[in-house]
Amino acid sequence: MDKPLTIYGQTLSTRLFIGSALYPSPAVMQQSIKASGAEVVTVSLRRQGTLEAGNDFWQLIKDTGLKVLPNTAGCHSVQEAVTLAKMCREVFQTNWIKLELIGDEYNLQPDPIGLLEATKQLIDDGFEVLPYCTDDLVICQKLVDLGCEVLMPWGAPIGTGKGLLNPYALKTIRERLPNTTLLVDAGLGLPSHAAIAMEMGYDAVLLNSAVAQAGDPIAMAKAFSLAVDAGRIAYEAKAMPEKEVAKPSTPTMGMPFWHQQ
Protein backbone atom coordinates (compact mmCIF):
# COMPACT_ATOMS: atom_id res chain seq x y z
CA MET A 1 0.00 0.00 0.00
CA ASP A 2 1.18 3.50 -0.86
CA LYS A 3 2.81 5.43 1.95
CA PRO A 4 0.77 8.57 2.67
CA LEU A 5 2.21 11.97 1.91
CA THR A 6 3.35 13.91 4.95
CA ILE A 7 4.24 17.60 4.95
CA TYR A 8 6.10 18.56 8.11
CA GLY A 9 4.34 15.82 10.03
CA GLN A 10 0.87 16.43 8.61
CA THR A 11 -0.53 13.52 6.67
CA LEU A 12 -2.39 14.24 3.45
CA SER A 13 -4.39 11.82 1.35
CA THR A 14 -4.08 13.65 -1.96
CA ARG A 15 -0.97 14.66 -3.84
CA LEU A 16 -2.23 17.72 -5.66
CA PHE A 17 -1.78 21.18 -4.16
CA ILE A 18 -3.74 23.92 -5.86
CA GLY A 19 -3.55 27.68 -6.16
CA SER A 20 -6.41 30.11 -5.65
CA ALA A 21 -5.46 32.74 -8.24
CA LEU A 22 -6.49 33.64 -11.79
CA TYR A 23 -9.86 31.89 -11.91
CA PRO A 24 -12.59 33.57 -13.96
CA SER A 25 -14.77 33.97 -10.87
CA PRO A 26 -14.81 33.13 -7.15
CA ALA A 27 -17.46 30.48 -7.78
CA VAL A 28 -15.32 28.77 -10.42
CA MET A 29 -12.37 28.95 -8.03
CA GLN A 30 -14.33 27.18 -5.32
CA GLN A 31 -15.67 24.51 -7.64
CA SER A 32 -12.29 23.93 -9.26
CA ILE A 33 -10.57 23.53 -5.92
CA LYS A 34 -13.23 21.03 -4.92
CA ALA A 35 -12.93 19.13 -8.21
CA SER A 36 -9.16 18.92 -7.82
CA GLY A 37 -9.51 16.97 -4.59
CA ALA A 38 -6.68 19.07 -3.14
CA GLU A 39 -6.34 19.34 0.61
CA VAL A 40 -3.95 22.28 0.46
CA VAL A 41 -4.62 25.61 -1.24
CA THR A 42 -2.12 28.43 -1.71
CA VAL A 43 -2.91 32.01 -0.72
CA SER A 44 -1.04 35.29 -0.33
CA LEU A 45 -1.20 38.78 1.20
CA ARG A 46 -1.51 42.13 -0.53
CA ARG A 47 -2.24 45.70 0.48
CA GLN A 48 -5.62 46.14 2.10
CA GLY A 49 -7.87 48.29 -0.01
CA THR A 50 -6.69 46.84 -3.28
CA LEU A 51 -9.40 45.38 -5.43
CA GLU A 52 -9.37 41.81 -4.27
CA ALA A 53 -7.62 41.77 -0.92
CA GLY A 54 -9.82 41.23 2.03
CA ASN A 55 -12.26 39.30 4.02
CA ASP A 56 -14.57 38.13 1.22
CA PHE A 57 -11.84 36.10 -0.42
CA TRP A 58 -10.61 34.76 2.88
CA GLN A 59 -14.12 33.65 3.82
CA LEU A 60 -14.38 31.71 0.56
CA ILE A 61 -11.12 29.94 1.29
CA LYS A 62 -12.14 29.19 4.86
CA ASP A 63 -15.39 27.73 3.53
CA THR A 64 -13.40 25.16 1.56
CA GLY A 65 -12.13 23.76 4.85
CA LEU A 66 -8.72 23.15 3.30
CA LYS A 67 -5.32 23.69 4.79
CA VAL A 68 -3.74 26.90 3.54
CA LEU A 69 -0.20 27.32 2.30
CA PRO A 70 0.66 31.04 2.23
CA ASN A 71 3.26 32.24 -0.23
CA THR A 72 5.72 35.11 -0.46
CA ALA A 73 5.03 35.64 -4.16
CA GLY A 74 6.51 38.76 -5.68
CA CYS A 75 9.26 39.29 -3.11
CA HIS A 76 12.62 40.29 -4.53
CA SER A 77 14.76 40.51 -1.39
CA VAL A 78 15.45 38.39 1.66
CA GLN A 79 13.99 41.05 3.94
CA GLU A 80 10.79 41.36 1.92
CA ALA A 81 10.29 37.61 1.87
CA VAL A 82 11.01 37.14 5.58
CA THR A 83 8.73 40.02 6.55
CA LEU A 84 5.90 38.79 4.34
CA ALA A 85 6.30 35.26 5.73
CA LYS A 86 5.92 36.59 9.27
CA MET A 87 2.83 38.57 8.26
CA CYS A 88 1.40 35.44 6.64
CA ARG A 89 1.98 33.43 9.80
CA GLU A 90 0.01 35.91 11.87
CA VAL A 91 -2.90 36.15 9.44
CA PHE A 92 -3.16 32.52 8.38
CA GLN A 93 -2.09 30.94 11.67
CA THR A 94 0.28 28.42 10.14
CA ASN A 95 4.01 27.82 10.28
CA TRP A 96 3.98 26.63 6.69
CA ILE A 97 5.33 29.07 4.14
CA LYS A 98 5.81 28.63 0.41
CA LEU A 99 8.97 30.66 0.18
CA GLU A 100 9.15 32.45 -3.12
CA LEU A 101 11.99 34.88 -3.77
CA ILE A 102 12.19 36.11 -7.32
CA GLY A 103 15.60 36.71 -8.88
CA ASP A 104 14.63 37.69 -12.39
CA GLU A 105 11.60 39.53 -13.73
CA TYR A 106 11.60 37.89 -17.14
CA ASN A 107 11.31 34.26 -16.17
CA LEU A 108 10.43 34.76 -12.48
CA GLN A 109 13.29 32.45 -11.62
CA PRO A 110 13.87 31.95 -7.91
CA ASP A 111 16.95 33.68 -6.55
CA PRO A 112 18.84 30.67 -5.22
CA ILE A 113 21.31 32.63 -3.11
CA GLY A 114 18.69 34.78 -1.41
CA LEU A 115 16.51 31.72 -1.00
CA LEU A 116 19.14 30.05 1.17
CA GLU A 117 19.48 33.08 3.43
CA ALA A 118 15.73 33.60 3.76
CA THR A 119 15.22 29.90 4.46
CA LYS A 120 17.81 29.99 7.23
CA GLN A 121 16.20 33.02 8.88
CA LEU A 122 12.72 31.55 8.70
CA ILE A 123 13.67 28.11 9.99
CA ASP A 124 15.51 29.78 12.88
CA ASP A 125 12.24 31.59 13.59
CA GLY A 126 10.21 28.37 13.73
CA PHE A 127 8.80 28.28 10.20
CA GLU A 128 8.25 25.10 8.21
CA VAL A 129 9.60 26.21 4.88
CA LEU A 130 8.50 24.90 1.49
CA PRO A 131 10.95 26.67 -0.80
CA TYR A 132 10.06 27.27 -4.43
CA CYS A 133 13.45 26.64 -6.01
CA THR A 134 15.19 25.96 -9.28
CA ASP A 135 16.11 22.43 -10.29
CA ASP A 136 19.73 22.94 -9.20
CA LEU A 137 20.74 19.86 -7.23
CA VAL A 138 23.30 21.61 -5.06
CA ILE A 139 20.92 24.38 -4.05
CA CYS A 140 18.37 21.68 -3.21
CA GLN A 141 20.93 19.85 -1.08
CA LYS A 142 21.81 23.05 0.76
CA LEU A 143 18.14 23.76 1.44
CA VAL A 144 17.84 20.29 2.96
CA ASP A 145 20.99 20.90 5.00
CA LEU A 146 19.32 24.03 6.41
CA GLY A 147 16.42 21.92 7.61
CA CYS A 148 13.86 21.86 4.78
CA GLU A 149 11.87 18.64 4.81
CA VAL A 150 10.06 19.67 1.64
CA LEU A 151 11.41 21.17 -1.60
CA MET A 152 9.47 22.50 -4.55
CA PRO A 153 11.66 22.74 -7.66
CA TRP A 154 10.12 24.32 -10.72
CA GLY A 155 9.02 22.34 -13.73
CA ALA A 156 9.14 25.48 -15.88
CA PRO A 157 8.75 29.22 -15.24
CA ILE A 158 5.55 30.23 -13.45
CA GLY A 159 2.52 30.44 -15.67
CA THR A 160 4.17 29.12 -18.84
CA GLY A 161 2.48 25.73 -18.97
CA LYS A 162 5.57 24.26 -20.61
CA GLY A 163 5.76 21.16 -18.44
CA LEU A 164 9.00 19.64 -17.18
CA LEU A 165 11.74 21.48 -19.05
CA ASN A 166 14.60 19.55 -17.50
CA PRO A 167 13.52 16.02 -16.63
CA TYR A 168 17.12 14.94 -16.08
CA ALA A 169 17.66 17.56 -13.37
CA LEU A 170 14.38 16.69 -11.67
CA LYS A 171 15.17 12.97 -11.77
CA THR A 172 18.61 13.63 -10.34
CA ILE A 173 17.14 15.58 -7.43
CA ARG A 174 14.76 12.70 -6.76
CA GLU A 175 17.63 10.22 -6.91
CA ARG A 176 19.97 12.21 -4.69
CA LEU A 177 17.41 13.30 -2.07
CA PRO A 178 15.43 10.11 -1.45
CA ASN A 179 14.29 11.16 2.02
CA THR A 180 13.08 14.64 1.11
CA THR A 181 9.48 15.32 0.17
CA LEU A 182 9.56 16.74 -3.34
CA LEU A 183 6.87 18.66 -5.19
CA VAL A 184 7.07 19.99 -8.70
CA ASP A 185 5.83 23.54 -8.43
CA ALA A 186 5.14 25.83 -11.37
CA GLY A 187 5.17 25.52 -15.11
CA LEU A 188 2.79 22.63 -15.54
CA GLY A 189 0.23 22.99 -18.32
CA LEU A 190 -1.24 19.57 -18.93
CA PRO A 191 -2.30 16.67 -16.76
CA SER A 192 0.31 14.56 -18.57
CA HIS A 193 3.01 16.91 -17.19
CA ALA A 194 1.79 16.17 -13.69
CA ALA A 195 1.67 12.45 -14.41
CA ILE A 196 5.28 12.49 -15.62
CA ALA A 197 6.40 14.24 -12.42
CA MET A 198 4.58 11.67 -10.33
CA GLU A 199 5.96 8.76 -12.39
CA MET A 200 9.45 10.10 -11.59
CA GLY A 201 8.72 9.65 -7.92
CA TYR A 202 7.83 13.21 -7.03
CA ASP A 203 5.60 13.16 -3.98
CA ALA A 204 3.11 15.76 -5.20
CA VAL A 205 2.59 18.66 -7.57
CA LEU A 206 1.51 22.23 -6.99
CA LEU A 207 -0.28 24.03 -9.78
CA ASN A 208 -2.51 26.99 -10.40
CA SER A 209 -2.53 28.52 -13.90
CA ALA A 210 -2.96 25.16 -15.64
CA VAL A 211 -6.36 24.80 -13.99
CA ALA A 212 -7.41 28.42 -13.55
CA GLN A 213 -6.57 29.42 -17.12
CA ALA A 214 -8.06 26.34 -18.77
CA GLY A 215 -11.16 26.71 -20.92
CA ASP A 216 -13.07 24.72 -18.32
CA PRO A 217 -11.16 25.03 -15.04
CA ILE A 218 -13.44 22.66 -13.14
CA ALA A 219 -13.02 19.86 -15.68
CA MET A 220 -9.28 20.50 -15.87
CA ALA A 221 -9.01 20.28 -12.10
CA LYS A 222 -10.57 16.84 -12.26
CA ALA A 223 -8.24 15.84 -15.10
CA PHE A 224 -5.20 16.85 -13.05
CA SER A 225 -6.50 14.96 -10.05
CA LEU A 226 -6.79 11.77 -12.12
CA ALA A 227 -3.37 12.30 -13.70
CA VAL A 228 -1.68 12.78 -10.34
CA ASP A 229 -3.26 9.60 -9.05
CA ALA A 230 -2.35 7.70 -12.23
CA GLY A 231 1.24 8.89 -12.08
CA ARG A 232 1.59 7.95 -8.44
CA ILE A 233 0.13 4.49 -8.96
CA ALA A 234 2.47 4.02 -11.93
CA TYR A 235 5.46 5.01 -9.79
CA GLU A 236 4.47 2.50 -7.13
CA ALA A 237 3.91 -0.15 -9.80
CA LYS A 238 7.48 0.33 -11.12
CA ALA A 239 7.74 0.82 -14.87
CA MET A 240 9.26 -1.80 -17.17
CA PRO A 241 12.86 -1.16 -18.18
CA GLU A 242 13.23 0.82 -21.38
CA LYS A 243 14.92 -1.06 -24.24
CA GLU A 244 16.51 -0.05 -27.53
CA VAL A 245 15.40 -3.11 -29.48
CA ALA A 246 11.85 -4.21 -30.19
CA LYS A 247 10.60 -7.36 -28.55
CA PRO A 248 7.26 -8.85 -29.62
CA SER A 249 4.60 -9.01 -26.97
CA THR A 250 2.51 -11.64 -28.77
CA PRO A 251 4.15 -15.10 -28.59
CA THR A 252 6.01 -16.10 -31.76
CA MET A 253 5.73 -19.82 -30.93
CA GLY A 254 3.11 -21.40 -33.17
CA MET A 255 2.98 -18.45 -35.50
CA PRO A 256 1.38 -19.55 -38.81
CA PHE A 257 3.16 -18.84 -42.13
CA TRP A 258 6.39 -18.32 -40.19
CA HIS A 259 9.40 -18.61 -42.43
CA GLN A 260 7.51 -20.78 -44.94
CA GLN A 261 8.38 -18.94 -48.11
Partner: peptide, 10 residues
Protein backbone atom coordinates in the same frame (compact mmCIF):
# COMPACT_ATOMS: atom_id res chain seq x y z
CA UNK B 1 3.44 51.22 6.91
CA UNK B 2 2.08 48.21 5.12
CA UNK B 3 -1.31 46.75 6.01
CA UNK B 4 -1.85 43.48 4.20
CA UNK B 5 -4.87 41.22 3.83
CA UNK B 6 -5.49 37.79 2.26
CA UNK B 7 -5.58 37.51 -1.49
CA UNK B 8 -5.50 34.78 -4.09
CA UNK B 9 -2.12 33.14 -4.52
CA UNK B 10 -0.45 30.48 -6.63
Amino acid sequence: IEILSPIQGG
